[in-house]
Simulated assay, not measured.
Amino acid sequence: MKTKFKPLSCNDGDVLSYKGRLLKFSQFKQQLENELWQKVNYLLTKENDGCHSRERICDLINTSFSSCNISVSLSSSEEGNDCEILRLGANNWQKGKIRNQSSIDFLPNDQGSSKVAKIQFNLEFLPEENEVQQHQLSFDDMMYAA
């Protein structure tokens, strides 16, 4: 059976329990961005320790013939990682799996624009089976069950 991950919709103030840490969603996204930059810095400074990575990126994307685009991706496993989410206003944690596909795209510097990097996050969530069933109960079902 194929898993049904859905796009993750969280507010920046929602809390995630992920890999033994509690993080606000905004901190989680910042952590992903930092990890992407660490990978880029590692790739670009592996052989040239004295160069600033952003300068090297500009040298790489602006060639004498034209421009090129460079993309660095960071992906979790296909089955995702265990996670719990506490949404603002919710009474309970929602258990499930989270997976991500994040990337930094380095674009040519158009007419003096200082923006060289475009960062994208594609975060998906798969609630545990019992969590899905609980959310499918109607208000009437809950009233008659009590």
Rank of each mutant, 00 (worst) to 15 (best):
L23W: 00
V40Q: 02
E128L: 07
F139I: 06
D49I: 01
N41I: 01
R54K: 14
P108C: 06
L88K: 12
C68W: 11
K2L: 04
L8P: 01
G89M: 04
Y18M: 00
D110P: 02
V40P: 04
L36S: 10
K46A: 10
D105H: 08
P108W: 06
S66W: 11
L22E: 15
I104R: 11
L22G: 04
F5R: 15
F25T: 06
S71V: 10
K97C: 10
T3D: 13
G13I: 13
G13H: 14
T63S: 09
S103E: 02
K115S: 11
F25G: 00
H52C: 09
M1C: 12
D82Y: 09
G50A: 07
I57M: 15
K46N: 05
A117V: 11
L8I: 13
D82M: 10
Q133L: 03
D110L: 09
Q27L: 10
Q31F: 13
P127K: 12
N62A: 10
I98Q: 15
E33V: 04
S114H: 09
W93I: 00
E79W: 04
K95I: 00
G50C: 01
N48D: 09
S71A: 13
I85V: 02
N11V: 03
Y18H: 04
S102T: 02
E84P: 01
V116H: 14
D49S: 05
D59C: 14
I61C: 13
S64V: 04
S77I: 05
Q38S: 14
S77E: 07
K29L: 11
K2I: 10
S102L: 03
I85H: 11
G20R: 08
S76E: 03
M142F: 06
A90C: 06
Q120S: 12
H52A: 02
V116S: 11
A145H: 11
Q111R: 14
N62C: 11
K39I: 13
A145R: 06
H135V: 03
E79H: 08
T45Q: 15
D12E: 15
Q101A: 13
P7K: 14
Q111D: 12
L22A: 08
S9I: 15
I98F: 12
K6S: 15
F121G: 00
N109C: 05
G50D: 11
L16V: 05
N91A: 15
S102V: 03
D14I: 11
N62Q: 14
T45A: 09
S73Y: 15
Y144D: 05
D82S: 10
Q136A: 08
G13P: 01
K29G: 12
F139G: 07
F139H: 15
R21S: 15
L44Y: 02
S77V: 04
L86C: 07
K118A: 06
L16N: 08
E78W: 12
D12H: 10
Y42F: 02
F65L: 03
E128T: 08
S73T: 05
N130C: 04
E55D: 07
A117N: 12
L86S: 14
E84T: 11
L16K: 02
S9N: 11
F139E: 01
D14A: 13
S71D: 13
E128P: 01
E129I: 06
N81P: 00
E79K: 09
S102Q: 06
Q31C: 12
L44V: 03
K46L: 09
S71C: 10
